[in-house]
Design a protein around this nucleic acid. Structure first.
Length: 424
RNA sequence: GGAGAGAUGGCAGAGUGGUCGAAUGCGGUGGUCUUGAAAACCAUUGUACGGCAACGUACCGGGGGUUCGAAUCCCUCUCUCUCCGCCA
């Protein structure tokens, strides 16, 4: 969420910038600023009353100690009224703060000045397009058929065991998964990211910390018995490492990478987009997370984009880089770049990575701050994350783009990890 | 699953109803001394909100209660540890 202070100091600017995200903030920001005035006034009144109460209590203690029981009891009589008004002010304050918070949570992150206006996918800006779609044989087939042909993925068995969207990888298909995970982790480690293996299940606090709760509650699998949630991405447990943390300035940059299985209910997605590996309930992903000094977060974003790009290049896949427009940038991001890989057999672009700078939007809710020696008060850090990379669509693109009449060619960089150079 | 113990500042650890935002030790920061460092000594060292400031208010795992007054007493939840059981 945005900080109150920012909104107070930059009201006009914020309203203008949020229009890029097609969000009219005029009314809500006005309400917030009014409410905060109320909050301050009520707080001041409450503090003063409490101060009076405190000193009266102290006095009573002294009186009792010095044996003046009568005076003490007289003073006691006065406390009842104070007590009532404190309770009253307190409940008033609680509801003001609650309302204020609710409103704050409804405002999306301010988009970066370079975010283009636009309504949806079609307005995203293609930053670059690299590599050419391979000229496939006329009988080229989509990955779900390739997966069957070479016995790599058994979707039917997944349905039998669990349900749709939970594929079973086998043989070279399973090895390919493991190879990709290790390849990605190694690449990330070489780029300075510390590897972590986080829990795959998180508690409510963590869900709120990264903003999955309360708004996206329905998208996560919920273990009601223990009130825990299956993670939709490693971003959740990894970013929550830093919840309620105050870093030192010299700790930056903090760089973590994690492989995890990801679980998404994907309630409401049906149809041809869910064919094969395009959209799953359980999938594998290697994530990168960075915490940065506010002055350096955009430099870091660029570094992350370049890093992800280098991995895709090593996989020998044709890709393009998109700068998301306001309408397609997520609620919490300030600037997002998407990588899409071309699937020749499906004749469509598949999103394989999304790299975003959240600036202090996530950090504010997480209470992730840093403090330099010369700083009086802790300041919010910037958080960034990206997929490096998500497996299913990479696998789909690898199978489809590298298919030959003899079999599927494994990219050179991956061979040391798979132990074979051809799937046949 | 059963029985018990516990949760206090960056860490360790005192504090069982008022003078406690909290002793003490360690750590951190600044300084004195030193050619430099170490040691020693001195000072300082939580977060949030309000206020130009002085200062005020809140926070001793979370929530609720008793009381004029709660870190301290009561209830409840969560978590951690120990033992037993079960088990990868």
């Amino acid at each position: 969420m945005l900080s109150l202070k920012y909104l107070q100091e930059n009201q006009e600017e914020a309203i203008k910038a949020l229009k890029i995200k097609n969000f009219d903030a005029t009314e809500i920001i006005g309400k917030i600023i009014d409410l905060d005035e109320k909050r301050k006034a009520t707080q001041a009144e409450q503090d003063a009353t409490q101060a009076e109460m405190n000193s009266l209590s102290k006095e009573i203690g002294m009186l009792f100690k010095s044996g003046k029981a009568e005076e003490a009891n007289a003073a006691k009589a006065k406390t009842g009224e104070l007590k009532n008004s404190i309770a009253e002010l307190n409940s008033k304050q609680t509801s003001i703060v609650e309302e204020l918070n609710n409103l704050l949570l409804q405002i999306p992150n301010i988009p970066h000045s370079s975010v283009p206006a636009g309504k949806g996918e079609e307005d995203n800006v293609i930053e670059k397009s690299v590599g050419e779609a391979p000229s496939l044989a006329p009988d080229a087939i989509p990955h779900w058929e390739l997966a069957k042909k070479y016995n790599l993925i058994d979707f039917d068995l997944g349905v039998k065991i669990t349900g749709a969207g939970f594929p079973l990888y086998r043989g070279k298909g399973a090895i390919l998964q493991r190879a990709l995970i290790n390849f990605f982790l190694d690449e990330n480690r070489k780029a300075g990211y510390e590897e972590v293996i986080p829990p795959l299940v998180v508690n409510e606090d963590s869900g709120y910390g990264t903003g999955q709760l309360p708004d996206k509650e329905g998208q996560m699998y919920h273990v009601t018995e223990d009130n825990l949630y299956l993670i939709p991405t490693a971003e959740v447990p990894v970013t929550n490492i830093y919840r309620d943390v105050i870093l030192k300035g010299e700790d930056f940059p903090v760089k973590n990478t994690a492989y995890s299985a990801c679980f998404r209910r994907e309630a409401g997605s049906y149809g041809k987009d869910v064919r094969g590996l395009n959209r799953l309930h359980q999938f594998d992903k290697v994530e990168i997370v960075q915490l940065q000094h506010p002055e350096k977060s955009y430099e870091a974003l660029e570094g992350m984009v370049n890093h992800v790009e280098s991995i895709i290049q090593k996989l020998e896949l044709p890709y393009r880089l998109l700068r998301l427009c306001g309408g397609d940038t997520s609620f919490t991001a300030a600037l997002t770049f998407d990588f899409e890989v071309y699937s020749a057999a499906q004749d469509k672009w598949l999103e394989v990575s999304s790299v975003s700078n959240f600036e202090s939007y996530q950090a504010n809710r997480l209470k992730l701050r840093f403090k330099d020696k010369d700083m009086k008060k802790p300041q919010l850090a910037h958080t960034l994350n990206g997929s490096a990379l998500a497996l299913p669509r990479i696998v789909a693109a690898l199978l489809e783009n590298h298919q030959t009449p003899e079999g599927i060619k494994v990219p050179k960089a991956l061979v040391p990890y798979t132990g074979f150079d051809m799937i046949d």
